[in-house]
Simulated assay, not measured.
Amino acid sequence: MPARALNGLESLENFVKTVKSGKSDFTQTVTSPARTGEAPRVKNSSGTFEFQRPGKFKFQYKKPFEQLILADGTSLWIYDADLNQASQRKQSSAFANTPAALIASATDLSALRNEFTLENAPEKDGLVWVSAKPKSADSTLQTVRIGFKGEALQQLDITDSFGQRSLINFATMQLNPSLPASSFQFTLPKGAELLKQ
């Protein structure tokens, strides 16, 4: 008898318990709500993504603009190559009820349930889904949907409180690769301006 396929919550639980690091290329499509008489605005970008539990991740955007979003366990860094500007924030205050917390910080579902209401969502596009709604009233997120193919994270579908939707597709994600510590260290490029937040 074939093994029963996992539902979304079971896939998420397996992911947070057994996947300690990951690496993937990604594409992101951001759709802003339509203004009166205008079509919705759509922006596409792509790059690479790496994470390591607990609390380290790196989104390296390559197209159409170079940008780095890096969490090193203490600080959240955002670096814009075109402006040659970086900003630094305390990770703990910037991180709690964000999609990054779902991927990179929690080590079990009970930790996630402190921040999010989690529910299985209907299967779609060959993926099993979990819907995560932040419990915090002042969250900038409305909902995050997390799509899995088996144990592999495949998609994040994020809607913020302004109705903007971000769809992140991960190409084949490598699970538990060995990542060097330098992957999650930020060095301010020469001549770059640092904005403290």
Rank of each mutant, 00 (worst) to 15 (best):
G73R: 06
G73P: 02
G73L: 02
G73A: 08
T74P: 01
S75F: 06
L76Q: 01
L76F: 03
W77G: 04
W77Q: 05
Y79T: 08
D80L: 01
A81S: 12
N84K: 10
N84A: 14
Q85V: 14
Q85S: 13
Q85A: 09
S87N: 12
S87P: 01
R89K: 15
S92D: 15
F95G: 08
F95T: 08
A96P: 05
N97W: 00
A100D: 10
A100H: 00
A101R: 00
A106Y: 00
T107D: 15
T107R: 05
T107K: 08
D108K: 03
S110C: 05
A111D: 12
A111E: 12
A111M: 09
E115N: 12
F116N: 03
T117M: 11
E119F: 04
P122D: 12
P122I: 03
P122A: 11
K124H: 12
K124L: 08
G126H: 01
L127C: 07
V128I: 10
V128L: 04
V128K: 03
W129C: 04
V130G: 01
V130E: 00
S131I: 00
S131K: 09
S131Y: 03
K133P: 08
P134N: 07
P134M: 01
S136V: 09
S136F: 02
A137D: 14
A137V: 14
S139Q: 07
Q142C: 05
V144C: 02
I146Q: 02
G147Q: 05
F148G: 02
G150E: 13
A152Q: 13
L153G: 11
L153I: 13
L153K: 01
Q154I: 06
Q155A: 11
Q155M: 14
Q155G: 10
D157C: 01
T159R: 06
S161H: 11
F162Q: 15
Q164S: 12
Q164T: 14
Q164M: 09
R165L: 07
N169P: 10
N169L: 14
F170C: 08
F170R: 05
M173Q: 07
M173K: 03
Q174R: 03
Q174F: 04
N176P: 10
